[in-house]
Design a protein around this nucleic acid. Sequence first.
DNA 1: TAGGTCAAGCCGCGGC
DNA 2: GCCGCGGCTTGACCTA
Length: 224
Amino acid sequence: MGLGLGLSIGVGDEYVPKRDQQKNKRVAEFCLDLALPLCLEQEGKEGMNSEYSKAEGSISSSETCKFRDCGDDMENKNSSNKKLRLTAGQTSLLEDSFNLSSTLNKAQKEALAERLNLRPRQVEVWFQNRRARTKLKQTEVDYAFLKKCCESLSDENRRLKKELQELPSVKVKQPPVYIQLPKATTLAMCPSCEKFVQFGGDPDDDDTNKTTASIANKYQGHKH
DNA sequence: TAGGTCAAGCCGCGGC
DNA sequence: GCCGCGGCTTGACCTA
């Protein structure tokens, strides 16, 4: 246990070499110097479990590395296959970054990786998996919505058929029946509570061409 | 212990 | 050819 794979200092049996502590300090300075669009709104977000330290600019030393298989020798195939677990602080910072942008350029990825004391590849994988999770949730919500529409239309169809049967048998050419379909709906995930918010689909509404700002405004209106 | 979660590997595809 | 991404999958870990 406690391989000390280039990770910062921990509590108990976790050990981090002094050179890595110094490296973390350099990383923190580096990240603070970067004008990255990452977590710029940390001011005012202090209550959201972010365990990383703004002052230090990196994951706090006691917070890093509940995982055992990361670090400089990840390429070492002899290392154990123990599963990496990101800490709450790491996940929090990744989530914040993801809420700002679901993709990262190379510089952002590397800076975030340094800041999290992870490899860029790990940050990249996290973002890929996060996008996949978002898409899956979106698909589930879309499915539920379409299912509801389908059930509603079936009910309407049954009702109309019954109504038709009850009509006196007058041979009148039936006009086509038009059913008022529900407005197209746009679903989007609230970045703070991760629940999907349903927006109306008025074509004249900007929701159909929604911007990040307009979505953010909508999020503020829904119940958490 | 079964089922869920999630980091990570692999592969194919498209853009450059 | 390289790179980034999505889709699918695997395997470690967690939890009811």
